[in-house]
Design a protein around this nucleic acid. Structure first.
Lengths: 255, 255
DNA sequence: CGACACTTTGAAGACGATCAACGCCGGTGG
DNA sequence: CCACCGGCGTTGATCGTCTTCAAAGTGTCG
């Protein structure tokens, strides 16, 4: 998992391409803050005041429907940011709640900081643009999945991405979030998720408690989705990527 | 509908904030090209070579699943762009097909043009960023809809946005695309869409052929989704927006 | 040990996908 | 002018999947 303690904040994708001095200038305007598990960063309707960089832990972004249903828009892991889209669109208020789902550390910046510096440092704007458009891309692909794949397929695809993006050992790793949270993130009920996990055993994925085993990497291909833009996200994992999701020439869509 | 013939290309959101001379410099690198209805701009697997600005008509972006199913990712209307995300992420090949669904005119630019100029003109990068992140936002919200709303609700929400974004008369307008295309865009089968349209009559929306009537604007609120980021998209339509989707204080989620 | 959150499992129901048939319309060709 | 065709949309019936409701099981932490 990518971590960003004050030590390695300089390695964040958001700041890539900037000189060390530029990074210093930028970072010094931020303030590190810690959130306990289950503590809110902000809620629906709050004024947009801050841009956050999550350094450690994870933050759930979610909405509630009038009938009390909770809908997770995204889970922001360490190294990613919150609020960029809202600020650049000059949205006055937040359209979702943000709550820490682990003990979390985040650096916060005033919105003016982001607006000014994304004009001053075009590379910063580009980095943010890339991150946001990638997130949007993922959202589009997942919307597609929801329309074309069964629940077990979606789960398998999610687990595969999880394993690759977080650099977990495919032969055995623990889920980083509760099953309830993951189910919500995938837009399905916890019961469906639970049953889906059970079914994955027939397809070479075993789940015992929170532990996941890809016991047959070949069979993973049944679920591999060549459109999930895993490709350019962690360039150092070429090998694993080749093992897990081997896009076949001419193949489109999700199997 | 926003049109961008060579005359009004200067008014595009993408170029907003640039001087007339800067616009000239930028635009002169482009080449206008016309596509007949049903003509492909590119297909899945093609090299990413160009950045497109759709001036007139509309372009469907879609994938095909291995079992021959067609999945529409998006419909790009006049004034919007194609390829920005791919270029900024240095994707080598296209992950979807692009086909004109009307007679269409588009200006095309080499990818280097976009890369260089989004560094040179940070405002251009910001504009593109805003457009892309808005598109991603919409995708996320629609994914949410797919998980929380019934088919008729999704259709109503779509029609409402359509009416507002294209500046149609809510008391009667024609669908700009075929029902088949819209159904695909919403990720549902044409049969489901057709039945959904029929049901909307009980809720104050009448459809006769391709013509849509919001015969009871008050009832629209039953479907209005306060999270659909219509708000900052066409600033000139405050009044209509107030009529159609009136977000209530403290209200979250989709009704 | 007991409280509580989280997860699993079962059974019933709702919704959308699928399959099939039909109506409608515009175009083509005899 | 009519017959034929293909694309498009509607409607009906059936089926599979996911949600919902209900209950029991598991784990953790005081």
């Amino acid at each position: 998992m990518q971590r960003a303690s004050p030590d390695n904040i300089r390695t964040l994708r958001l700041f890539s391409g900037l000189s060390e001095q530029e990074k210093d200038n930028l970072i010094q305007a931020g303030r590190t803050r810690r959130y306990a598990n289950r503590q809110y960063l902000f809620v629906y309707g709050d004024q947009v005041r801050l841009f956050h960089i999550v350094c450690d832990g994870a933050v759930q972004l979610f909405r509630e429907t009038p009938d009390g249903h909770e809908m997770t828009s995204d889970i922001i892991a360490a190294g990613d940011t919150i609020g960029g889209a809202e600020i650049l669109q000059s949205q006055a208020t937040h359209r979702f709640n943000a709550i820490a789902v682990k003990d979390t550390a985040a650096i916060e910046f005033p919105i003016a900081w982001l607006k000014e510096n994304s004009k001053r440092y075009s590379i910063l704007a580009l980095n943010l643009l890339t991150m946001l458009s990638r997130r949007g891309n993922t959202a589009m692909i997942e919307a597609e999945h929801k329309a074309t794949m069964t629940a077990p397929q979606q789960i398998a695809c999610f687990l595969e991405r999880l394993c690759i993006l977080h650099d977990y050992d495919p032969h055995g790793f623990d889920l980083p979030y509760s099953k309830t949270l993951i189910a919500s993130r995938l837009g399905m009920e916890i019961e469906t998720f639970s049953r889906g996990l059970a079914k994955l055993h027939e397809h070479g994925i075993t789940i015992r408690g929170a532990r996941v085993f890809f016991d047959d990497i070949e069979k993973m291909e049944n679920y591999a989705c060549s459109n999930c833009s895993i490709s350019d996200t962690c360039q150092e994992h070429e090998l694993l990527r080749g093992q897990l999701s081997r896009p076949k020439p001419g193949r489109v869509g999700c199997a």
